[in-house]
Design a protein around this nucleic acid. Structure first.
Lengths: 135, 135
DNA sequence: TTAAAAGTCTATTAACTTGGTAGGATAATG
DNA sequence: CATTATCCTACCAAGTTAATAGACTTTTAA
């Protein structure tokens, strides 16, 4: 399951996507409109900025804004950034891979099946962007 | 991600699947062969029994065994039982549904996409059984 | 040039979950 | 009735999640 943090991140990002090219948006505005605890949102946005997804401006007239076009920001990347692995097992994760203990990946039915699940999910998540989330 | 508990559960269940119809299997045997902490495994097997997936016999010659044929036990059900929801959001979960706060499901792009992801995963997990995990 | 605006940073906290342990109660067998 | 093995209740340590607090820095504009 996605953490609350991830859900907040998506709400904030889609809000910024709608206001793309309208200049910086205040944290406090996003917080109020999307009902996200202000200080928690601060942390999230800062993290997204450090990851290169957002940029910001300080001082009066400042705020946060998307660094790239909403159609260039993949949902899969947002999830990996804020939530972590998409796969159900570390041993089938592409970006967070860890070998299984006491388990031969070559002969593990669970492993094989979880690769299928991963690919089925990625087939969707890698091909959708923030833009697709705007209804 | 699946918890360690879930991974242990799958290891134990596949072990029992191999020994299906060979009578009760000791917790201690599973623990040793599959390298699962004994007391932790006790809890897991008991839980699986209460859920009707396993049955057990006490005393000498006792142990645990699958209640149904391995081909009748769906992977999806094992995950729901031990790990919880398969969906990435409560608002798109079939068995653990919870309404979103401050979010209209009718007009939420994330919601719609997560339904797709859920269905893609379930399409696999609902159609595989313990038997399919034996390589 | 200085005050206000707004993001940045560090740290702390409470609640919950996870992984695991301890020890006795209960039931079946021979 | 002693042995075997599951059943049950409780507990604990470590880690994660969600959130808060407060001081600091940068920018802008009066």
């Amino acid at each position: 399951m996605l953490s609350k943090k991830s859900q907040y991140a998506f709400k904030a990002l889609t809000y910024l996507a709608i206001k793309y090219n309208e200049g910086p948006v205040l944290i406090s505005e996003i917080s109020k409109k999307k009902k996200i605890p202000l200080k928690f949102l601060e942390n999230i946005l800062l993290e997204l900025k450090k990851a290169g997804m957002l940029d910001s401006k300080k001082g009066k007239g400042g705020g946060y804004f998307l660094k790239k076009d909403p159609s260039k920001i993949k949902v899969a990347n947002v999830i990996r950034l804020v939530n972590g692995p998409i796969a159900m097992l570390p041993c089938v994760s592409l970006y967070f891979y860890e070998r299984c203990k006491n388990c031969d990946e070559k002969r593990c039915g669970l492993h094989d099946m979880m690769i299928e699940v991963r690919d089925a999910s990625l087939n969707i998540l890698e091909n959708r962007t923030l833009k697709d989330l705007l209804v």
